[in-house]
């Protein structure tokens, strides 16, 4: 809810200022926005479908059984991959991670899951490629995945 208020407030204020300063330029901004929107619409819709499919096939309970207590180092790798390919809102992801931790998963596994979840966007990659380019996207996500593994390892050592 706050998200919506912030975005709409910000854009509303910017739009008002824009209209006051120049109607012409505002019209142009709308045109640019519309074109860009139509261009990314297919990949946006595809992302929604993939997110739905992944969360439908892999509900939180399934994830729990995959990275649970006794799985060891394999669990860390599985967790990192799960985090990379899923797109779970933090309001669901952190409670899930917390309950996994309490039920016996290691800190390394949980931090691998959380870090790749937020740093690597496999599902959003098609859209990122369309908007920011293939090289940028691949580099950012691959490096992010490697970094996430390192972070998980360090956190497992320290905590």
């Amino acid at each position: 809810m706050t998200t919506y208020i912030i975005i709409y407030g910000l854009v509303g204020a910017a739009l008002t200022a824009s209209v006051i300063k120049s109607k012409e330029k505002t019209k142009k901004a709308f045109k640019i926005a519309f074109k860009a929107f139509m261009k990314s619409l297919p990949s946006l819709l595809a992302i929604l479908g993939i997110v739905g499919l992944i969360l439908g096939v892999l509900p939180p309970e399934t994830i729990e059984s995959m990275v649970g207590a006794e799985a060891g180092f394999t669990a860390t790798i599985v967790a990192a991959i799960l985090g990379a390919v899923t797109l779970i809102p933090s309001l669901i992801a952190f409670p899930l991670a917390g309950s996994l931790l309490r039920s016996g998963a290691t800190v390394m596994t949980i931090s691998a899951f959380v870090t790749t979840l937020v740093m690597v966007g496999f599902v959003t990659a098609p859209m990122e490629i369309k908007i920011l380019g293939k090289k940028f996207t691949v580099l950012r996500n691959v490096l992010g995945f490697i970094a996430a593994l390192v972070i998980a390892f360090v956190m497992g050592m320290i905590l």
Binding site: V11, A14, A33, A36
Partner: peptide, 9 residues
């Protein structure tokens, strides 16, 4: 929609 509009602006 507002995000793309912001981008346009």
């Amino acid at each position: 929609p507002p995000v793309f509009l912001l981008m346009g602006l």
